[in-house]
Structure formats: C-alpha cells, structure tokens
Design a protein around this nucleic acid. Sequence first.
DNA 1: TATCGAAATGCAACATTGTTGCATTTAAAT
DNA 2: ATTTAAATGCAACAATGTTGCATTTCGATA
Lengths: 136, 136
Amino acid sequence: MRQPIEILGLHNLKRTSCREGIIRVIMSASTALSESEIRERLEGNYDRTTFYRSFKTLVENKIIHKIVVDNQLVKYALDNSVTHKHEHAHFYCNECERVQCLDDVVMPALKLPTGYTLTEMELIIKGLCNQCSCKN
Amino acid sequence: MRQPIEILGLHNLKRTSCREGIIRVIMSASTALSESEIRERLEGNYDRTTFYRSFKTLVENKIIHKIVVDNQLVKYALDNSVTHKHEHAHFYCNECERVQCLDDVVMPALKLPTGYTLTEMELIIKGLCNQCSCKN
DNA sequence: TATCGAAATGCAACATTGTTGCATTTAAAT
DNA sequence: ATTTAAATGCAACAATGTTGCATTTCGATA
C-alpha cells in the first residue's frame, strides 16, 4: 500500500498534516473509524470544520469512503481505489458497535424494475462480529 | 389494508390524532416520506418532540420502518407487518430524491465470514427512478 | 532561496436532527 | 364521571453538518 503523502500527491492534493494524519490513522485501523475516533488518534488538534472539509475532500477523491449506519453513526474507511478491492458490504456489530468492511462479501447482482437505472449500492449487515459472538 | 385507528388498537397503543395522522399520511403516499413531508400533509401542528416520539413508537411496534439514505436524509414507510410483504431493498433516486420500497427486489442470501451472525440487513440502491430516467 | 497566489485552515455563527426532564393534558379503563 | 397511566408541549441541550471570512500555509515560480 502506498504512503499517505504519496496518495495525496497522486490526486494533486496539497499534503497537509491534517489530511496526511487522517489517511495514516485510517490505514492503520482494523475497523472503520468515526470522526471522534480519528481525532483521538491524531496528535494535532484540528478544528471541526477543517476535519469535516478534509473528509469531504478525501471522499470526493475516492481515497476514503463514508459508511453510515442508521443515522448519527458515521464511519470512514479506506476506499477501494486505494485497497484495490471490489465494492463490498459493511458489517455493523450491535454489541461492540464497530464497523468493518466485508471485503469478501461481494455485492449481489440485482434486477431492478423496468426503467430504473443503478449507479450505486449500499449494503449494511447488522449482527454480532466474531469476537462478540464468542463471548455469548 | 387495515385502517390507522385499527392498527394502533392491534398494538395496544393509544389512538392519538398525531399517531393516526402519521399512519394515514404514510399509507396514502407512493414513496417514503421525511418528517417534514409528513408534517406538511398533516392538519394538526404537533411539537417536534411529539413527532419524534411518535415515529419511535411506530417503528418499535413495526407499524412503519425507517429508511436512512446517507445521513441527514431520513424517510419513513409502512412496515412489512402491515403490508404483508417480505424484507426488501430501498431505492433512492439521485434526481428527484424520492425513496421507494422495492418490494420485488428480495434481499440476497449472503455468506458471512466465520463467527459472524446476521440479525438485519439494509440494502440501499441509488440511481435514477423510472420517471427521472425517461426525462433524460 | 525568496516571493506570491491559490488553497487550506481556524473561528464564529448558524441549521438540522436527535434527545431528555418535567409539568400539563389526554385516552381509555373503571 | 373519575382516575391513572400514557402522551404531549415546552425548554434546554448535544452532535453533526454547513457557510462566510480573515488568516495561514503549501508549493509553484522567479
């Protein structure tokens, strides 16, 4: 996987410490992270607006992607263009509330009603993750 | 389909005008509706808190269900227990921004990684609806 | 390396949605 | 008609998203 700085350069984005840090934190995480979780793991103290705009830029450039569970729960993970994986489903654990990309669960092919065209799909699966289902 | 008042009775819920109105508006709509869209179609002027709690109660009793597209866009539609349909996918039109239940698009059977258990699935399909794709 | 313009940042302010506590009102059982 | 548990309205607040604008910083160029 490429380095954060390198990724920013490839997309002609300024290499600021905020953007670099966000990418680095997300890359080193095993689950998708929320804005506050990412802030906690960053040394610099950035303004919320800056954070928000950085996420927006990174999403627009397909460096990270945004996963929304219900509403009010927003998480970020590396995008397919960086990981070289396919479009995938997301798993939300009802117990530990962690969100993971299910790289091996390929999006199903669907037949839409006549006249409908598809551009995007979002599949959220809720349940218990392997760690939490062991504890029960 | 049963009448709103009757549905409330079946769930041992008080038949208040707010709840009755919400169900009536949702039943007569062809698409899922947001809180503000439902308010516009109701005569009574209810407090936001009351609205919020009414939705919560109706969702908990599986009379309506909540559909979240991205975040910040929350819509409601009748639940399967009322419509007698199966679990289904939802369609969001990027053009007219309407949300529809795709009753004929059955949720796909998925194979999760070992140790993961499934309790719920949400499938949102984005694209152009039949009306909007005709116009282009 | 110094300069400069465009882009990013920080701050203030605000909108929307979700949420709780509490006093008041209402539904519906008696 | 009375009574009580539930629903409502109000106030207040939290979290997230959003915009405008002055300031700072990146990085291209001289």
